[in-house]
Simulated assay, not measured.
Amino acid sequence: MKNTCMRATALAAFSLLGANVCAQSNVTIYGVVDAATAYASNQGGNSNTYMRSGSLSASKIGFQGVEDLGGDLKALFLLESGFESDTGAQSSADSLFNRQAYVGLQSTAYGTLTAGRQYTPYYLLVGSLASSNVLTGATGAHPGDIDGLDTTVRISNSLSYSMPAWRGLQASAQYGFGEAADGNAVGSSFSAAVKYSTSPAEFALGYLKLKNGRNAASSMAMSGQAGWNSNASGSFGVSALNQGYISADSIEFIAASARYTMGRWMVGANASNVQYQAGSHSTFRDTAIFNTAGLISSYQLTPRWFLAAGYSDTFASHANGIADRARYRQLSFEQTYALSKRTAIYLIEARQLARGQTLGQNGDIVNAVASVGDSQNGTPSSNGGQTVVMVGLKHSF
């Protein structure tokens, strides 16, 4: 009887202790499972019907935590991993938390400081008003996500600071360490952005610079495989648009976005300038520039039906022996029906036309080919036209 009482007392104490720990830890598990059937009119010369993960929202699982340290200070962390819902595989085989992994401190008075693998202020503030946020990056991102306004750009080894929001104004800056011992900031990155919201309008302006690793670029050039250093702090989307320029010494992104909301209607515009700057080990000699202008609109037809459309026009520069510069025009649509607050079925469509010339993977001048959004970065068309249609189901938890 005595042992039974002791066991009961210990169990009660353990239960109370566990409840107290849970109350203080405040960890949230969240995620998205998104699967679609996709059709592409031309992938390397043939049409294709296939299953695709993360077409409306990336399939992922995340762990987010906040701890109150007292006063005005909180500790926070976020770990987020992408996966393929059609196969169950990790989105990145060599990275468990490939999407985000950071820890930081937050103060209402002084702002937020975080360290780890993170999105850029350029994407978080400017991209939040751009087409990929409204239409989804799969078919709505600017061709190949050439301007990094979707999630193809992430920065490892980075420190980010965000100021407290003040009268609708937000500002943030980030530095990614190249972690090279030569003191030349090899492979480093820098981003800064501001956003101003004053209902019903929003405006954002951002900057991002990614540096290649010259030491690694030199060794790759000697082996005939010059490209982007995998150890650089920043990564970006590679597509048929920019594959001839991935040996750049550095890449600069400048973008601006604006939105105006009128009841159920939203209209917006965005513009970007991207420069691939050549170095001594690059396979091209002249700075290559891509300018993009875009328009977006959405309409909340009913509480369940959401409609959106976008158009973008991307121009490459005359450089590196190219007389007929590449041009990419893309029209995108989305129709989403919410079955509940967490579950939706969707239909997305896009058509892209490409003309002119660009540089191919080996540095040769080639005809520009279509590559819709950022879902076709590895499967571009064999010619100047590509149509993509996807129908899918998304569930958030």
Score class of each variant (00 low, 15 high):
residue 313 D to C: 14
residue 313 D to I: 02
residue 313 D to T: 13
residue 313 D to S: 15
residue 313 D to A: 10
residue 313 D to E: 12
residue 313 D to G: 09
residue 313 D to K: 09
residue 314 T to I: 01
residue 315 F to L: 11
residue 315 F to A: 13
residue 315 F to Y: 08
residue 315 F to T: 06
residue 316 A to T: 02
residue 316 A to G: 08
residue 316 A to E: 00
residue 316 A to S: 03
residue 316 A to L: 01
residue 316 A to F: 00
residue 317 S to D: 06
residue 317 S to A: 07
residue 317 S to C: 02
residue 317 S to R: 00
residue 317 S to M: 01
residue 318 H to C: 03
residue 318 H to Y: 05
residue 318 H to P: 11
residue 318 H to V: 05
residue 319 A to V: 00
residue 319 A to F: 02
residue 319 A to T: 02
residue 320 N to D: 04
residue 320 N to G: 02
residue 320 N to S: 02
residue 320 N to Q: 02
residue 321 G to F: 00
residue 321 G to A: 04
residue 322 I to Y: 02
residue 322 I to V: 02
residue 322 I to W: 01
residue 322 I to F: 02
residue 322 I to A: 02
residue 322 I to N: 02
residue 322 I to K: 01
residue 322 I to D: 00
residue 322 I to E: 00
residue 323 A to Q: 09
residue 323 A to G: 08
residue 323 A to M: 04
residue 323 A to K: 09
residue 323 A to C: 06
residue 323 A to S: 10
residue 324 D to P: 06
residue 324 D to M: 00
residue 324 D to R: 05
residue 324 D to N: 08
residue 325 R to P: 10
residue 325 R to G: 05
residue 325 R to H: 10
residue 326 A to C: 07
residue 326 A to W: 02
residue 326 A to Q: 05
residue 326 A to Y: 01
residue 326 A to G: 09
residue 326 A to L: 03
residue 326 A to R: 03
residue 327 R to D: 11
residue 327 R to T: 06
residue 327 R to Y: 10
residue 327 R to A: 06
residue 328 Y to F: 09
residue 328 Y to T: 01
residue 328 Y to D: 04
residue 328 Y to C: 06
residue 328 Y to P: 07
residue 328 Y to V: 05
residue 329 R to I: 08
residue 329 R to G: 12
residue 329 R to V: 06
residue 329 R to Q: 13
residue 329 R to T: 05
residue 329 R to M: 10
residue 329 R to S: 09
residue 329 R to C: 10
residue 329 R to F: 09
residue 329 R to D: 14
residue 329 R to P: 14
residue 330 Q to H: 12
residue 330 Q to R: 12
residue 330 Q to P: 08
residue 331 L to M: 15
residue 331 L to F: 12
residue 331 L to Y: 12
residue 331 L to I: 09
residue 331 L to Q: 15
residue 331 L to W: 15
residue 331 L to V: 14
residue 332 S to P: 14
residue 332 S to Y: 07
residue 332 S to E: 15
residue 332 S to Q: 14
residue 333 F to N: 12
residue 333 F to I: 06
residue 333 F to Q: 15
residue 333 F to L: 11
residue 333 F to G: 12
residue 333 F to S: 07
residue 333 F to D: 15
residue 333 F to K: 15
residue 333 F to A: 13
residue 334 E to M: 15
residue 334 E to W: 08
residue 334 E to V: 14
residue 334 E to G: 08
residue 334 E to I: 11
residue 334 E to K: 13
residue 335 Q to D: 15
residue 335 Q to R: 11
residue 336 T to C: 08
residue 336 T to Y: 07
residue 336 T to D: 12
residue 336 T to S: 14
residue 336 T to I: 10
residue 336 T to N: 09
residue 336 T to W: 07
residue 337 Y to N: 09
residue 337 Y to I: 03
residue 337 Y to H: 08
residue 338 A to D: 15
residue 338 A to I: 03
residue 338 A to G: 11
residue 338 A to P: 10
residue 338 A to V: 04
residue 338 A to E: 07
residue 339 L to Q: 11
residue 339 L to S: 12
residue 339 L to R: 09
residue 339 L to E: 14
residue 340 S to G: 11
residue 340 S to Y: 07
residue 341 K to N: 13
residue 341 K to H: 13
residue 341 K to M: 12
residue 341 K to I: 05
residue 342 R to N: 14
residue 342 R to V: 05
residue 342 R to L: 12
residue 342 R to A: 11
residue 344 A to T: 05
residue 344 A to K: 02
residue 344 A to D: 09
residue 344 A to V: 01
residue 344 A to M: 03
residue 344 A to Q: 07
residue 345 I to K: 03
residue 345 I to R: 03
residue 345 I to W: 06
